[in-house]
Nucleic acid binder design. Sequence first.
DNA 1: AACCGGACCTGTATGC
DNA 2: TGCATACAGGTCCGGT
Length: 289
Amino acid sequence: MPELPEVETIRRTLAPVLVGARVTAALRGAHPEDIVRDPWPVFLQGVRGRTVAALERRGKYLALRFHDETRLVVHLGMTGELRAGHPAELPGPHCHLALVLRAGTALPATLVDHRRRFLLRYRDARRFGRMLLLDADGWERFSRRLGPEPLGPGLDARAFWQTLSRRRAPVKAALLDQALLAGVGNIYSDEALFRAGIHPARRCTTLSLADVERLLEALRAVLEEAIASAGTTIRDYRDGAGRAGSFQSRLAVYGKPPGTPCPHCGTGLQRIRVAGRSSTFCPRCQPLV
DNA sequence: AACCGGACCTGTATGC
DNA sequence: TGCATACAGGTCCGGT
Protein backbone atom coordinates (compact mmCIF):
# COMPACT_ATOMS: atom_id res chain seq x y z
CA MET A 1 0.00 0.00 0.00
CA PRO A 2 2.11 2.85 1.16
CA GLU A 3 5.02 4.02 -0.94
CA LEU A 4 7.39 6.88 -0.22
CA PRO A 5 4.83 9.75 -0.45
CA GLU A 6 2.35 7.96 1.81
CA VAL A 7 4.96 7.08 4.43
CA GLU A 8 6.33 10.63 4.29
CA THR A 9 2.82 12.01 4.81
CA ILE A 10 2.31 9.75 7.82
CA ARG A 11 5.66 10.90 9.16
CA ARG A 12 4.71 14.56 8.82
CA THR A 13 1.32 14.13 10.45
CA LEU A 14 2.58 12.03 13.37
CA ALA A 15 5.82 13.88 14.14
CA PRO A 16 4.23 16.83 16.02
CA VAL A 17 2.31 14.37 18.21
CA LEU A 18 5.04 11.80 18.79
CA VAL A 19 8.19 13.84 19.26
CA GLY A 20 8.70 14.40 22.96
CA ALA A 21 6.17 11.72 23.94
CA ARG A 22 7.17 8.88 26.25
CA VAL A 23 6.02 5.27 25.77
CA THR A 24 4.39 4.01 28.97
CA ALA A 25 3.01 0.66 27.75
CA ALA A 26 2.29 -1.52 24.74
CA LEU A 27 -1.06 -3.24 24.24
CA ARG A 28 -1.60 -6.55 22.45
CA GLY A 29 -4.39 -6.69 19.87
CA ALA A 30 -5.61 -9.32 17.40
CA HIS A 31 -2.33 -10.81 16.06
CA PRO A 32 0.58 -8.90 17.57
CA GLU A 33 3.03 -11.77 16.98
CA ASP A 34 2.54 -11.46 13.19
CA ILE A 35 3.71 -7.84 13.25
CA VAL A 36 6.31 -7.94 16.04
CA ARG A 37 8.48 -11.03 15.60
CA ASP A 38 10.40 -10.45 18.85
CA PRO A 39 8.94 -12.19 21.91
CA TRP A 40 6.44 -9.79 23.46
CA PRO A 41 8.40 -9.22 26.72
CA VAL A 42 11.47 -8.26 24.67
CA PHE A 43 9.41 -5.81 22.63
CA LEU A 44 7.81 -4.35 25.74
CA GLN A 45 11.19 -3.92 27.41
CA GLY A 46 12.49 -2.23 24.25
CA VAL A 47 9.85 0.49 24.05
CA ARG A 48 8.65 1.12 27.60
CA GLY A 49 10.01 4.22 29.25
CA ARG A 50 11.62 5.55 26.06
CA THR A 51 11.00 9.06 24.76
CA VAL A 52 10.64 9.78 21.03
CA ALA A 53 13.40 12.12 19.83
CA ALA A 54 12.42 12.14 16.15
CA LEU A 55 10.23 10.45 13.59
CA GLU A 56 12.29 9.41 10.57
CA ARG A 57 11.60 7.90 7.15
CA ARG A 58 13.89 5.75 5.04
CA GLY A 59 12.32 4.51 1.82
CA LYS A 60 9.01 2.96 2.82
CA TYR A 61 10.14 2.50 6.42
CA LEU A 62 9.16 4.73 9.32
CA ALA A 63 11.37 4.87 12.40
CA LEU A 64 10.63 6.20 15.88
CA ARG A 65 14.05 7.28 17.08
CA PHE A 66 14.31 7.31 20.85
CA HIS A 67 16.67 9.43 22.92
CA ASP A 68 19.03 6.49 23.43
CA GLU A 69 19.39 6.11 19.62
CA THR A 70 17.43 2.85 19.54
CA ARG A 71 14.66 2.79 16.95
CA LEU A 72 11.27 1.23 16.49
CA VAL A 73 11.17 0.55 12.76
CA VAL A 74 7.76 0.17 11.12
CA HIS A 75 6.89 -1.16 7.68
CA LEU A 76 3.23 -0.93 6.71
CA GLY A 77 3.20 -3.74 4.15
CA MET A 78 0.15 -3.42 1.90
CA THR A 79 -2.61 -2.44 4.30
CA GLY A 80 -0.86 -1.18 7.44
CA GLU A 81 -2.12 1.97 9.17
CA LEU A 82 -0.44 3.88 11.97
CA ARG A 83 -2.69 6.36 13.69
CA ALA A 84 -2.71 8.48 16.82
CA GLY A 85 -5.96 8.39 18.73
CA HIS A 86 -7.69 9.05 22.04
CA PRO A 87 -7.36 6.17 24.55
CA ALA A 88 -11.13 5.89 24.84
CA GLU A 89 -11.61 5.44 21.11
CA LEU A 90 -12.55 1.92 19.99
CA PRO A 91 -9.72 0.21 18.11
CA GLY A 92 -11.71 -1.08 15.13
CA PRO A 93 -11.01 -4.38 13.35
CA HIS A 94 -7.50 -5.69 12.56
CA CYS A 95 -5.82 -3.66 15.28
CA HIS A 96 -2.82 -5.78 16.24
CA LEU A 97 -1.08 -3.61 18.78
CA ALA A 98 -0.91 -0.12 20.22
CA LEU A 99 1.63 1.95 22.10
CA VAL A 100 0.41 4.02 25.03
CA LEU A 101 2.24 7.34 25.15
CA ARG A 102 2.29 10.37 27.39
CA ALA A 103 2.50 13.56 25.35
CA GLY A 104 5.48 15.85 25.91
CA THR A 105 3.49 18.98 25.14
CA ALA A 106 -0.13 20.05 25.35
CA LEU A 107 -2.23 18.35 22.66
CA PRO A 108 -5.90 18.69 21.65
CA ALA A 109 -8.38 17.18 24.13
CA THR A 110 -9.83 15.16 21.26
CA LEU A 111 -6.54 13.24 21.18
CA VAL A 112 -5.36 12.96 24.79
CA ASP A 113 -7.02 12.11 28.12
CA HIS A 114 -6.67 14.14 31.34
CA ARG A 115 -3.20 12.68 31.92
CA ARG A 116 -2.03 13.64 28.42
CA ARG A 117 -2.05 10.01 27.32
CA PHE A 118 -2.84 8.90 23.78
CA LEU A 119 -2.52 5.74 21.71
CA LEU A 120 -0.50 4.96 18.61
CA ARG A 121 -2.50 2.20 16.99
CA TYR A 122 -1.27 -0.23 14.35
CA ARG A 123 -3.95 -1.74 12.10
CA ASP A 124 -3.30 -4.08 9.19
CA ALA A 125 -5.91 -6.29 7.53
CA ARG A 126 -3.43 -8.40 5.56
CA ARG A 127 -0.70 -8.45 8.22
CA PHE A 128 2.15 -7.99 5.76
CA GLY A 129 3.56 -5.18 7.91
CA ARG A 130 6.36 -5.57 10.45
CA MET A 131 7.85 -3.75 13.44
CA LEU A 132 11.34 -4.28 14.73
CA LEU A 133 13.60 -2.78 17.36
CA LEU A 134 17.13 -1.83 16.35
CA ASP A 135 20.03 -0.27 18.18
CA ALA A 136 22.11 2.44 16.48
CA ASP A 137 24.37 -0.13 14.82
CA GLY A 138 21.51 -2.32 13.67
CA TRP A 139 19.78 0.68 12.10
CA GLU A 140 22.94 1.70 10.30
CA ARG A 141 23.29 -1.79 8.80
CA PHE A 142 19.59 -1.93 8.00
CA SER A 143 19.70 1.41 6.22
CA ARG A 144 22.81 0.45 4.29
CA ARG A 145 20.92 -2.40 2.57
CA LEU A 146 18.59 0.12 0.97
CA GLY A 147 19.36 2.18 -2.11
CA PRO A 148 19.54 6.00 -2.10
CA GLU A 149 16.57 8.22 -1.38
CA PRO A 150 15.05 9.39 -4.69
CA LEU A 151 14.54 12.88 -3.24
CA GLY A 152 17.87 13.02 -1.44
CA PRO A 153 21.31 14.15 -2.58
CA GLY A 154 22.72 10.60 -2.75
CA LEU A 155 21.14 9.73 -6.08
CA ASP A 156 23.39 10.40 -9.03
CA ALA A 157 21.95 9.81 -12.53
CA ARG A 158 25.23 8.67 -14.04
CA ALA A 159 25.99 6.21 -11.22
CA PHE A 160 22.42 4.88 -11.39
CA TRP A 161 22.72 4.46 -15.15
CA GLN A 162 25.95 2.50 -14.70
CA THR A 163 24.29 0.24 -12.13
CA LEU A 164 21.39 -0.36 -14.51
CA SER A 165 23.71 -1.13 -17.40
CA ARG A 166 24.71 -4.35 -15.60
CA ARG A 167 21.12 -5.54 -15.26
CA ARG A 168 19.11 -7.44 -17.81
CA ALA A 169 15.83 -7.18 -15.92
CA PRO A 170 12.98 -4.88 -17.05
CA VAL A 171 13.47 -1.28 -15.92
CA LYS A 172 10.33 -1.53 -13.79
CA ALA A 173 11.89 -4.35 -11.75
CA ALA A 174 14.87 -2.10 -11.08
CA LEU A 175 12.64 0.78 -9.92
CA LEU A 176 10.88 -1.58 -7.51
CA ASP A 177 14.14 -3.02 -6.14
CA GLN A 178 14.59 -1.36 -2.73
CA ALA A 179 18.32 -2.13 -2.77
CA LEU A 180 18.68 0.07 -5.87
CA LEU A 181 16.31 2.88 -4.95
CA ALA A 182 14.42 3.26 -1.67
CA GLY A 183 10.70 3.96 -1.54
CA VAL A 184 9.32 3.40 -5.04
CA GLY A 185 6.40 0.99 -5.48
CA ASN A 186 3.93 -0.01 -8.16
CA ILE A 187 1.98 3.25 -8.35
CA TYR A 188 4.87 5.69 -8.72
CA SER A 189 6.98 3.44 -10.93
CA ASP A 190 4.13 3.27 -13.47
CA GLU A 191 3.58 7.02 -13.23
CA ALA A 192 7.27 7.88 -13.59
CA LEU A 193 7.75 5.53 -16.56
CA PHE A 194 4.75 7.10 -18.26
CA ARG A 195 6.03 10.65 -17.74
CA ALA A 196 9.46 9.64 -19.02
CA GLY A 197 8.02 7.82 -22.05
CA ILE A 198 9.72 4.53 -21.16
CA HIS A 199 8.07 1.12 -21.57
CA PRO A 200 7.98 -0.76 -18.21
CA ALA A 201 9.40 -3.91 -19.83
CA ARG A 202 12.39 -2.14 -21.44
CA ARG A 203 15.59 -3.96 -20.49
CA CYS A 204 17.81 -1.84 -18.23
CA THR A 205 20.73 -2.52 -20.56
CA THR A 206 19.00 -0.67 -23.42
CA LEU A 207 18.57 2.61 -21.52
CA SER A 208 20.72 5.60 -22.48
CA LEU A 209 22.06 8.06 -19.92
CA ALA A 210 19.50 10.56 -21.22
CA ASP A 211 16.73 8.00 -20.63
CA VAL A 212 17.83 7.51 -17.02
CA GLU A 213 18.15 11.24 -16.42
CA ARG A 214 14.63 11.76 -17.78
CA LEU A 215 13.31 8.87 -15.70
CA LEU A 216 14.79 10.12 -12.43
CA GLU A 217 13.55 13.64 -13.15
CA ALA A 218 10.05 12.29 -13.76
CA LEU A 219 10.24 10.15 -10.65
CA ARG A 220 11.28 13.05 -8.43
CA ALA A 221 8.53 15.24 -9.85
CA VAL A 222 5.79 12.67 -9.34
CA LEU A 223 6.96 11.85 -5.80
CA GLU A 224 7.04 15.53 -4.84
CA GLU A 225 3.60 16.18 -6.31
CA ALA A 226 2.22 13.13 -4.50
CA ILE A 227 3.64 14.34 -1.18
CA ALA A 228 2.07 17.76 -1.81
CA SER A 229 -1.25 15.91 -2.30
CA ALA A 230 -0.76 13.92 0.94
CA GLY A 231 -0.38 10.62 -0.94
CA THR A 232 -2.62 8.33 -2.98
CA THR A 233 -5.64 6.66 -1.39
CA ILE A 234 -6.88 3.77 -3.52
CA ARG A 235 -8.65 2.11 -0.65
CA ASP A 236 -6.94 1.76 2.72
CA TYR A 237 -4.26 4.38 2.98
CA ARG A 238 -4.76 7.05 5.65
CA ASP A 239 -2.34 9.52 7.23
CA GLY A 240 -1.48 9.63 10.93
CA ALA A 241 -4.73 11.45 11.70
CA GLY A 242 -6.95 9.18 9.59
CA ARG A 243 -7.26 11.44 6.54
CA ALA A 244 -7.17 10.14 2.96
CA GLY A 245 -4.72 11.47 0.36
CA SER A 246 -5.80 13.05 -2.92
CA PHE A 247 -3.16 12.17 -5.52
CA GLN A 248 -5.42 9.37 -6.88
CA SER A 249 -7.25 12.02 -8.91
CA ARG A 250 -3.96 12.99 -10.60
CA LEU A 251 -2.83 9.51 -11.63
CA ALA A 252 -2.22 9.30 -15.37
CA VAL A 253 -2.01 5.54 -15.86
CA TYR A 254 -1.82 3.53 -12.64
CA GLY A 255 -4.95 1.47 -12.06
CA LYS A 256 -6.69 2.67 -15.24
CA PRO A 257 -8.62 -0.09 -17.01
CA PRO A 258 -7.06 -1.23 -20.30
CA GLY A 259 -8.40 0.81 -23.22
CA THR A 260 -8.68 4.02 -21.21
CA PRO A 261 -7.47 6.85 -23.49
CA CYS A 262 -3.91 7.95 -22.78
CA PRO A 263 -4.09 11.45 -21.20
CA HIS A 264 -1.36 12.58 -23.58
CA CYS A 265 -2.18 11.07 -27.00
CA GLY A 266 -5.54 9.33 -26.61
CA THR A 267 -4.28 5.87 -27.54
CA GLY A 268 -5.86 3.07 -25.48
CA LEU A 269 -3.75 2.18 -22.44
CA GLN A 270 -2.48 -1.38 -22.07
CA ARG A 271 -1.98 -3.53 -19.00
CA ILE A 272 0.72 -6.17 -18.78
CA ARG A 273 2.52 -8.09 -16.07
CA VAL A 274 6.10 -6.96 -15.39
CA ALA A 275 8.24 -8.13 -12.48
CA GLY A 276 5.18 -9.95 -11.18
CA ARG A 277 3.23 -6.70 -10.92
CA SER A 278 0.40 -5.35 -12.98
CA SER A 279 1.66 -2.47 -15.10
CA THR A 280 -0.34 0.07 -17.07
CA PHE A 281 1.26 2.09 -19.87
CA CYS A 282 0.62 3.82 -23.17
CA PRO A 283 1.92 1.75 -26.11
CA ARG A 284 2.42 4.88 -28.20
CA CYS A 285 4.06 7.22 -25.66
CA GLN A 286 6.10 4.36 -24.17
CA PRO A 287 7.31 2.27 -27.11
CA LEU A 288 9.27 -0.92 -26.49
CA VAL A 289 12.49 -0.34 -28.43
C1' DA B 1 24.85 -12.66 -8.58
C1' DA B 2 20.64 -11.93 -10.78
C1' DC B 3 16.15 -13.15 -11.68
C1' DC B 4 11.55 -15.33 -11.33
C1' DG B 5 7.58 -17.39 -9.14
C1' DG B 6 5.26 -18.49 -5.15
C1' DA B 7 4.10 -17.66 -0.32
C1' DC B 8 2.36 -14.79 3.11
C1' DC B 9 -3.00 -12.71 4.47
C1' DT B 10 -7.73 -10.59 4.09
C1' DG B 11 -11.10 -7.85 1.66
C1' DT B 12 -13.44 -6.60 -2.40
C1' DA B 13 -15.07 -6.88 -7.09
C1' DT B 14 -16.56 -9.73 -10.77
C1' DG B 15 -18.57 -13.57 -13.17
C1' DC B 16 -21.39 -17.63 -13.29
C1' DT C 1 -28.41 -14.83 -3.56
C1' DG C 2 -24.38 -17.78 -3.21
C1' DC C 3 -20.07 -19.37 -4.50
C1' DA C 4 -15.64 -19.45 -6.93
C1' DT C 5 -12.05 -16.83 -8.72
C1' DA C 6 -8.95 -12.99 -9.48
C1' DC C 7 -6.69 -9.24 -7.78
C1' DA C 8 -4.70 -5.58 -4.54
C1' DG C 9 -0.23 -0.12 -2.73
C1' DG C 10 5.14 -5.27 -0.55
C1' DT C 11 8.75 -8.22 0.82
C1' DC C 12 11.03 -12.62 1.53
C1' DC C 13 12.45 -17.16 0.24
C1' DG C 14 13.87 -20.93 -2.51
C1' DG C 15 15.07 -22.60 -6.90
C1' DT C 16 17.35 -21.93 -11.41
